[in-house]
Structures are given as structure tokens and as C-alpha cells.
């Protein structure tokens, strides 16, 4: 990303810059997390990276090609909201995108069965989303993205609606998925511990207009799991992220970051 910015124009109002001057290089096969204060433009940035939204300035390059307004082949997106289709079974939800690109039935079946097995959904293939928990529905959405074999997976706060315990377990599944698919992952989250646990690097965004103020490397091994939370370095990473995020969150709330904290 080079100099990416996005402005929203509304009649009779000042133009609102959600993002401005966003520069970032994501390495291949990297797990990159993005955190930032509420309203800093994280989801707007994800939409721009995905090609769902065109930037007002700057450019996003994916595999040497400029991304603008359409989702390029090779990018898969998992949204924060439950995006499963309640009228389809779990199997048909996962197969949905593959049928659309016209793959052979046998190939679709093999891919869907692998994804369902991988996400622990094989026993629920004939169930419908309303019969599943929130965590399982989100796994259906991840499986639906996974079967397309994306080289870049974008996740916009996919576990936001889940409880802490399920989040940790889903985080482990996400790490396994990342390792086994060799894909590059960009995760947007508001949970510091989630970002510190999962990512190779964490990009911290400023208050609006959002841009990266620092990229913090975690230096975890590729074989990590949720037990890194007991590593002494986990506390250091989280503390560093919080020290950066605290100032920006105060700024986003319209408070003077240099003012002393109330007693």
C-alpha cells in the first residue's frame, strides 16, 4: 500500500478523511494483524485492500497488480457479521463459491469435505446455519473462503461476536489454517491479546484519519499456538501495543492525550 487515503463526502458537511497516508508492505505468508482505536478506518482499509472500495488516493498492489474497486482473484474475505446463508445447508454454504466458478462436481466435493473436516464441521454438513452456534457459523464462513484457496485471506474482526474461550480456540484454528494453507493473512481486530498472540507483526493505526503509527514485530515461531500467552514476551508485546493504542484511543475520544489520567 502506498499513500492510501479514503475520503467520504456528505452534502453540506466537511469532507471526512477516514484514512490518509497509509503505507504498508505485507510479506508473503505473513500473519499480519491491524489494531487501532474505534473509528480509525480499519474496516475501510480492509475493504480497500480487498477491492471492495476504491481508495480516494494512493494505491494497493496485490501480486504486482493494482487493486481498485473489484476483488482480485486470490483474495478471500471473512467479515465480522454472520455472512452465512441461512437457506443453505453448511455443505452448500461452503460449496457456494465453487459452484459459481464452474468447477467439476467431484472437485467441489473434495474441496468442501476437506474444508469441513479442517474446520471441524464435518458432522454438521447437513445442518443449516440457524441450527449452529455463532462460532460455528463463523467457521462456516471461514470454510467458504478457504475452499477458494485464496493466497491472501482478509479477516475483519471475525471473532468479535464470540466469547473469550471460543475466541482463543478459533484463534488456534486460524493459526493452523494459516500454517497449512501457506496463505498470507491480514486480521483486523480490536483485541490486543488476539493480535499479540496470532500475528507475526501488528500494525497499530492512529485515530482518524487512520494511518500506521508503528508496526510491532512479535517474533513468535510459525508453530505457535495460544500458549504463547504465558510467554514473558507476550506481556511485553501487549504492553507496547497498549501504550501506542492508549494515546490514539484517547485522541479518538477527543481527549488531550497529554493530560494526566483521572485518579
Amino acid at each position: 500500500m502506498r499513500g492510501v487515503g479514503r475520503v467520504f463526502l456528505a452534502a453540506a458537511r466537511e469532507p471526512l478523511w477516514a484514512l490518509r497516508g497509509v503505507d504498508l508492505d505485507i510479506r508473503s505468508r505473513e500473519f499480519f494483524a491491524i489494531i487501532g482505536p474505534s473509528g480509525c478506518g480499519k474496516s475501510t482499509l480492509m475493504d480497500i485492500i480487498a477491492g471492495l472500495l476504491a481508495p480516494s488516493e494512493g494505491e494497493v498492489i496485490f501480486e504486482g497488480k493494482r487493486v481498485s474497486g473489484t476483488v482480485p482473484d486470490g483474495i478471500g474475505v471473512v467479515f465480522q457479521e454472520d455472512a452465512s446463508f441461512p437457506w443453505l445447508s453448511v455443505y452448500d454454504n461452503v460449496a457456494f463459491g465453487l459452484e459459481e466458478i464452474g468447477l467439476e462436481r467431484a472437485e467441489i466435493d473434495a474441496r468442501v469435505r476437506y474444508a469441513l473436516e479442517f474446520m471441524g464441521l464435518a458432522a454438521f454438513a447437513r445442518h443449516h446455519p440457524p441450527q449452529l452456534s455463532g462460532g460455528m457459523r463463523q467457521r462456516v464462513c471461514i470454510a467458504r473462503t478457504l475452499v477458494q484457496r485464496p493466497r491472501l485471506i482478509l479477516l475483519d474482526e471475525p471473532f468479535a461476536a464470540l466469547d473469550q474461550q471460543t475466541r482463543l480456540l478459533m484463534g488456534e484454528e486460524l493459526l493452523r489454517l494459516w500454517r497449512e494453507t501457506d496463505a498470507t493473512v491480514i486480521l483486523i481486530t480490536h483485541a490486543l491479546d488476539e493480535a499479540a498472540m496470532l500475528a507475526d507483526r501488528v500494525g497499530v493505526m492512529s485515530a482518524r484519519p487512520g494511518h500506521f503509527i508503528e508496526v510491532v514485530a512479535t517474533d513468535w515461531s510459525r508453530e505457535r499456538d495460544s500458549t504463547v500467552v504465558s510467554d514473558p514476551r507476550f506481556g511485553e508485546v501487549t504492553a507496547r501495543l497498549w501504550s501506542l493504542l492508549r494515546l490514539e484511543s484517547l485522541r479518538a475520544m477527543g481527549r488531550d492525550f497529554s493530560a494526566p489520567s483521572p485518579p
Binding site: I75, V77, E100
Partner: peptide
């Protein structure tokens, strides 16, 4: 979100309406 999913899956307009 359905519209976003359709775009993320690169669905054609006709497929979006029918499916």
C-alpha cells in the same frame, strides 16, 4: 453483508439475484 459477500466472491449480477 450479502452484497459484500457477493462482491467478495466476484458473483455476476444474475447469480446474485438468483442465488
Amino acid at each position: 453483508i450479502y452484497g459484500k459477500v457477493a462482491r467478495a466472491m466476484r458473483l455476476k449480477r444474475r447469480s446474485y439475484v438468483w442465488r
